[in-house]
């Protein structure tokens, strides 16, 4: 596993406690997991995603991400309806490892409550949190 200084933290996204990131673009929020999360999980072999049209509240489990010997749940950083899923992950789950903030995106959400997004951490706050965990 890498040191924090070796990891990338995009500054145009917000971060959730469970290491998902969320990016607001127009009316939709794109969701994935942070570079820190993918590094902790190791080689990702499968991503289980919901169906378009499903609705979840903030904090609900929307899927799972699997490495060879572990399964982790994915939680909604914002509540709302799923409007798109990244179907390319089915054939290339490694995108989550290689490009967590771009090709490795997981879902797009039509948020039900704008306040959900505002309550997420920015880059600095998330880095503070991770530094706190390391100590």
């Amino acid at each position: 596993m890498k040191e924090l200084s070796e990891l990338k933290f995009a500054d145009d996204v917000r971060y959730a406690e469970d290491h998902e990131w969320a990016k607001l673009e127009g009316d939709t929020v794109t969701v994935g997991i942070s570079d820190y999360a993918q590094d902790q999980l190791g080689d990702i072999v499968f991503v289980e995603l919901p169906q378009v049209g499903d609705s979840f509240a903030k904090g609900d489990e929307f899927g799972t991400v699997e490495s060879v010997k572990a399964v982790s749940e994915l939680y909604m950083p914002v509540g709302g309806e799923i409007v798109a899923i990244n179907e390319a992950l089915e054939d290339s789950p490694e995108s989550v490892n290689n490009a967590p903030y771009t090709d490795g995106w997981m879902i797009k959400v039509n948020p039900s409550n704008p306040a959900d997004y505002d309550s997420l951490m920015d880059r600095e706050a998330y880095l503070e949190k991770l530094k706190g965990q390391e100590e």
Binding site: F46, E66, S67, V68, K69, A70, V71
Partner: peptide, 12 residues
């Protein structure tokens, strides 16, 4: 595909 199995996913 062992993540389906009890030693990893336990009650799920």
């Amino acid at each position: 595909l062992a993540t389906r199995e009890q030693h990893i996913r336990r009650e799920r």
